[in-house]
Each structure stands twice: as structure tokens, then as C-alpha cells.
Amino acid sequence: MALPLPAGLTPAETAFLCENEPITVIPRQRMQSIELLSGPTPQLNPPRPTTLPLWLALLLHRQNRATLVPPPWLTPAGLETILAAELASPEFCDMLPFHWVEIAQALVSGGCLGGEEAVVGRLVRGVREVRGGKVRGFVVAGEGGVRGVGTVGAWEVGEVRGVVAGVGGGLARLGGGGGAEGRREEEEEDEDEEGGIEMGEGF
């Protein structure tokens, strides 16, 4: 019998969806345009900054053919500003992209931050902990949905999925679910809660 697939996206699937996010590079050598399914890439002319998909930027960085330029929010100064804003307000800071955790993880693990990987990793963990507490608090408290949901990242949605399933299942049982059916639903929800997204190494 086939094993049931976990609800939601796996960490690998979430990271894959992030690979087309635009990122700026400074080419170290000329390179002609490449025809991709999504369209042609820009021609690379050093030292003119160029925007490329994240996967291609990381590849060129590993080949020492381009220097990857971190986005302004993924610098120590940018993350300190974001962390201060997150701590100062119950709302979500709108300075981060939807795939901010995945982008940060890719650039830190790829050594793309000019020696500041350790500092950036520590700040990313701090921002992630503050925002994660907000998401879980709003859901459990029944705030009528997560306020500022448009600024919640993809990874954060995956992390809170188990909490949402647990709350929904608890409300269903309070509404009259019981007996064998209720126990079966409870077991399924417990399995879902174990399938939340976890961060990779460095976070």
C-alpha cells in the first residue's frame, strides 16, 4: 500500500520554487544570452550589474564567473532594521520577500555574503523566531486569520501548517466529533503536525 503524502510542501519543494527569484550579479566575464524555457537571459558584460534567476546566479558564483550581490534586506544593517521593526510592532514587517528564508539559506550556505555569513545567519534566526511567534500567536488566539498575511513567507506558512491543522481539528471535535471517527481524525492531525517545515543547517 502506498504511503500517504504529507500535506503541504516539503522543504526541498519550497526551496525549488524559490530558484526563479531575481538576484543581482556583477559578471566577471562576458557571456552571451542563454535561451531558457522562461525566455532568454540578459547578456553579461563586466562590470555591469545584471539581474538573473537565483539558480543561475548561484551557479555562476560557484564557477567564479560572477559576484552575487545580496539584496539590501540580507545585510547585517538591513536585518537589524527588520528585527527592530518586528520587535516594535505586533504586525509583520513588509520589508521581506515571500521566499526570504529560502533566499537567505541559499546565499548563506553558498558563501555569497563576503564573509558575513555567520552574522547574517544569526540575525536571520532572530527575525525568524520573532515572526514565527507572531504567526503561531495569531492562529492560536483566533484573530480571525493572520493579520498581514500578505507579508508572511512561504517557509513560515509551512511551519504553522501543523498548528492550523491542530486548531481546526480541536474545533471540529468540540463541535460534536467523537467515537472512532473522532479518534481517527485526531491521529491524522497528529501526523500532519509532525510534517512541518524545518530549517536547514545554519539556521
Rank of each mutant, 00 (worst) to 15 (best):
H99P: 02
L68I: 11
W55Y: 14
A66E: 04
G142V: 05
T41E: 11
P47S: 11
E159Y: 06
R62E: 15
G114C: 06
T51L: 07
G115E: 12
A88Q: 11
V130E: 13
E35G: 01
G132S: 13
N64V: 13
Q105E: 15
T50L: 01
G158R: 09
P76C: 02
A141I: 09
N64Y: 09
E159T: 01
G114V: 06
Q32N: 14
Q32F: 07
P53I: 12
A77P: 00
G111E: 06
A141K: 14
T75I: 05
W55L: 08
S38Y: 04
C93P: 02
P42I: 07
V160G: 02
G133Y: 09
R122H: 12
A57D: 06
E102K: 00
R65P: 01
R136E: 15
L96E: 05
V130W: 03
R125T: 13
P42Y: 09
R62W: 10
L113H: 01
W55S: 12
P53A: 12
A57L: 11
G137E: 05
G115Y: 10
E86N: 00
V149W: 08
V149R: 12
T75C: 03
F138C: 05
S38E: 13
T51D: 13
E156V: 07
P40C: 05
H99G: 04
R62N: 08
L74I: 04
G39N: 10
E159M: 13
F92D: 02
F138A: 15
R147P: 10
P70F: 08
L59C: 01
G110L: 01
F92Q: 02
E80I: 00
T81F: 00
A66P: 06
P47Q: 10
V140W: 00
E102R: 06
A84K: 12
P97Y: 11
M95V: 00
G132W: 05
A84C: 02
V127P: 00
E102W: 03
Q105H: 13
V120K: 03
V127T: 04
A106E: 08
P46W: 04
A141G: 13
P40H: 07
A85P: 01
R48C: 10
S109E: 11
L36Y: 03
P76Y: 01
T51V: 15
A104H: 01
A106R: 14
P42S: 09
R131Y: 13
T151F: 14
G78Q: 05
E117N: 05
G39L: 10
A104R: 03
E129H: 14
P53N: 11
V152P: 03
Q32L: 14
G111A: 07
W155D: 04
E102H: 03
T67G: 00
K134D: 07
L79A: 04
H61G: 08
V127E: 01
E129D: 15
G111W: 11
Q43M: 15
R62Y: 05
L52H: 06
A84D: 13
G158I: 12
A66R: 04
L36W: 10
G110D: 02
P97E: 12
R128I: 01
R131K: 09
T81R: 09
W155C: 09
P49V: 06
L52A: 11
V135N: 05
A118T: 12
V149M: 07
G39H: 08
P42T: 09
